[in-house]
Amino acid sequence: MPIISSEGQILIPKFVRDVLSISSGDEVDFQISGNQVFLCKKKHKKKSFRKYFGDLSNLQGANPDKIIEELRGKSDDISS
């Protein structure tokens, strides 16, 4: 039976960590119902990577070499 330390910490038994697929560094959530406490692995919402492409949507289908050339300038434009 796990015991709460003086710092309020508790060791989660290995079989519970295995069932919940919890490992070091994972976040957990406690849910309370009456006098019972439930331990749940915190689920992270998958963030849509598409929102980061919002400003680049106008480049869809464009030639990558042309995009780089526009961003960097032509090689003969570089001053030494």
Rank of each mutant, 00 (worst) to 15 (best):
H44I: 11
R72G: 01
N35W: 01
K46Q: 13
Y52I: 10
G73D: 04
E7Q: 11
D55K: 12
D76I: 03
G8K: 02
N35T: 11
E70K: 09
V19H: 11
K14R: 13
F30N: 06
A62L: 10
V37Q: 01
R72M: 13
K45L: 08
R17M: 11
D55S: 07
E7L: 11
K46P: 07
K45P: 03
S5A: 06
S24F: 08
G54V: 00
R72E: 10
I68P: 06
V28Y: 01
V19Y: 14
K41S: 04
G54Y: 05
L59C: 07
K66P: 00
K47D: 09
I22H: 09
F49M: 14
S23H: 04
K47F: 13
K41L: 05
Q60S: 14
P13D: 11
M1K: 08
K74V: 02
I32G: 05
N58T: 03
D76W: 15
I67C: 08
K51C: 02
E27P: 00
L56N: 07
C40R: 15
S48D: 13
P2D: 11
N58V: 06
Q60W: 01
D77K: 11
D77L: 03
G25I: 00
Q9W: 06
Y52V: 07
P13T: 03
V37S: 03
E70F: 09
G8P: 04
